[in-house]
């Protein structure tokens, strides 16, 4: 067993998991608290990447661009909430699905018209573009470490926000019983707008962190949204803890599966059979996990207590 490789792959899995968590956390907030199915969450992630890419070239520095892009995402989220989402809260989930699918088409095509179909590569400052030697043979790209650090910080921040602040208390209360919170004189509409904007910021941030690794591209929203839904379903809708654990779990299983499934299969089948079946199974892996989890726990791993 190559332990160095195993360690590096675990780190890669954690990094993927934390990126997934950033997207999924926003989704689970909006879904859990507002009971709103937002298919367009992936497109917000995509817009985040593009805004950040443009600002990187404008300001000359990736980190400045991230800082400038975050309020842009908040405004975008706020606008979507005010113009479209708010009118649909009282409706069936099916209306959410159709409406936000329309929103995906609008946002993706707008991005195509504004930024072109070719995508934008995002340059990093030199100190983020190199590698860090952790110990012995373990050399990892420094930007990947930054993603891990950012992901963990945001996770801690969200945990604190939801569990220990007045806003978090209102969020939790609003999720359980809207009428009661409103009766207490709380402006529930503003609260919901804030939650939606926060979700957009989290999705946008994930897009910004991915852009230097891949690039800002118009199809990136559709590529992440299904996986993000898988994460929040496995974790249990509305549960921040569930989203965190499920995101790490899926990130790790996906990465380790890609890496070691072929070797494992070769233990009990021919090399040819292993070479064809391993990639197919690893592509299916997250869906197999989700189906298995739901078959055993139909409400996900950590269903919220009272709904």
């Amino acid at each position: 067993m190559d332990y160095t490789l195993l360690f590096i792959q675990t780190l890669n899995g954690v990094q993927l998991g934390l990126l997934l968590f950033l997207v999924a956390s926003g989704l689970t907030l909006v879904f859990g608290i507002l009971d709103f199915v937002n298919l367009a969450h992936g497109s917000i992630y995509m817009i985040g990447a593009f805004v950040c890419a443009s600002l990187t070239y404008w300001s000359g520095n990736f980190l400045i661009a991230v800082v400038l892009s975050l309020p842009v995402m908040a405004v975008l989220g706020y606008l979507i909430e005010r113009v479209i989402a708010r009118r649909l809260y009282a409706r069936d989930h099916l209306d959410h699905v159709l409406g936000t699918f329309g929103l995906i088409l609008v946002m993706d095509t707008s991005a195509h018209l504004i930024w072109g179909p070719e995508g934008i590569a995002v340059p990093l400052p030199d100190w983020l573009n190199g590698q860090v030697t952790l110990f012995a043979d373990v050399v990892v790209p420094s930007f990947r470490l930054l993603i891990i650090a950012t992901g963990l910080t945001i996770a801690a921040g969200l945990f604190w926000l939801v569990n220990y602040t007045r806003l978090g208390m209102l969020i939790r209360a609003g999720a359980s019983n809207r009428t009661m919170v409103a009766a207490l004189g709380i402006d529930i509409k503003t609260l919901f707008s804030l939650v939606f904007a926060l979700g957009a910021v989290l999705a946008g941030l994930a897009g910004m962190l991915v852009a230097p690794i891949t690039e800002a591209s118009i199809s990136m929203g559709g590529e992440i949204i299904i996986t993000a839904f898988v994460v929040i379903i496995v974790g249990g809708i509305g549960s921040m803890k569930g989203a965190f654990i499920a995101a790490l779990m899926i990130g790790l299983i996906d990465t380790l599966g890609r890496s070691f499934l072929g070797d494992i299969f070769q233990l009990f089948m021919s090399q040819d059979a292993a070479e064809t079946s391993a990639p197919a199974i690893s592509a299916m892996l997250i869906y197999i996990i989700m189906a298995a989890v739901l078959a055993v726990r139909p409400q996900g791993l950590f269903p919220p207590k009272v709904r």
């Binding site: 199915v37 989930h93 839904f229 809708i237 869906y287 989700m290 189906a291």
Partner: peptide, 22 residues
């Protein structure tokens, strides 16, 4: 039920998709 049903049917659909793709 509900959204969980929506996602688990999607999961089975994707499994068939990747099966035929392979």
């Amino acid at each position: 039920k509900g959204v969980y049903f929506l996602m688990i049917t999607m999961a089975f659909g994707q499994m068939v998709f990747f099966l035929f793709q392979s």
